[in-house]
Design a protein around this nucleic acid. Structure first.
Lengths: 150, 150
DNA sequence: TACTTTTGTAATAAAGATTGTTACATGGCA
DNA sequence: TGCCATGTAACAATCTTTATTACAAAAGTA
């Protein structure tokens, strides 16, 4: 199955915070409007991103969300891990009951584990090489291009 | 969410075919016994692996399954793709309704798509570098070690 | 203090995928 | 004609995701 949209939504949230901070109040309601989901989904992700130290969230009038660190210090891997994109941090679901009475059944887990980790590492290293600063820079460039065309 | 156990089960199946071919009849029943799932799960995977040209499946008495090509020519990526490990071949689930009325909402998909593809490519390249011959060699070594210890 | 706004979170439901299981038709060989 | 194994349909159980309502808790303001 696919990796949860929590990940792309979280990137969307962080991009909004930096890109729209001078244009509108940044709360779960307005961001939900941009993402196209229920505000509670956003508030739950606020909780995870806050716990990971990526954002600061305040309650009450004039509350809302701000970044806790520079965009250049937030990698896609940080976001991916913050929102529990996969169960227990493991990308692959290994079948649970291989038969220990079979020579293959009792060894396959051990033989595959290292390789599955290598594959996951390759993916996570690529994620670590990309920062939110890259994403936001591209987004702002797109917006500027739109204005020029208009 | 995690990648379906169809992937690890399929690797288990192919490993059984080569490792146990002289020890027992290789049909959905015996392989299901090694994997620890219902034979119908195995038969459904037979269908996908067959369609991908990795195995040959015969019905009737003395039926069962054999490899369609050398293990060294089957990569983990081949198996991963054969069994539809992720929907539409896309690793990431992108939230479906970003708001086109928002500057971020109407650009985020385009900005992220290339990067998500890069991440997926990094993972798939690693998978392509590993063959079933590697897995089976390790498995046979484990089995030999077990016998020495006994 | 009372009011308003916004987060935090529980509870619930609907939809979708995975996995397990039974049942039976189909194909292929003796 | 039997026998055996695959192919597949049909269903159910479980789990995760996503959506939604409701309300308590916190924080600022009049």
């Amino acid at each position: 199955m696919q990796i949860s949209s929590r990940f792309t939504i979280a990137v969307h949230i962080l991009t909004c915070i930096d890109t729209l901070k001078d244009e509108m109040p940044l709360n779960s309601e307005t961001i939900a409007g941009s993402v196209g989901v229920n505000p509670v989904i956003i508030r739950n992700l606020f909780g995870k991103l806050k716990k990971a130290g990526l954002i600061i969230v305040l309650r009450g009038g004039n509350g809302g969300v701000t970044l806790a660190k520079p965009l250049s210090e937030i990698t896609l891997l940080d976001v991916y891990r913050a929102v529990d994109s996969v169960e227990d941090g493991k990308l692959f679901h290994f079948h649970a009951n291989p038969n220990a009475a079979c020579p293959v059944g009792r060894n396959i887990h051990h033989v595959m584990d290292g390789r599955l980790d290598e594959i996951q590492d390759a993916m996570e290293e690529k994620m670590q090489s990309m920062t939110l600063a890259d994403i936001v820079a591209d987004t702002k460039r797109c917006i500027k291009d739109e204005k020029q065309r208009a």
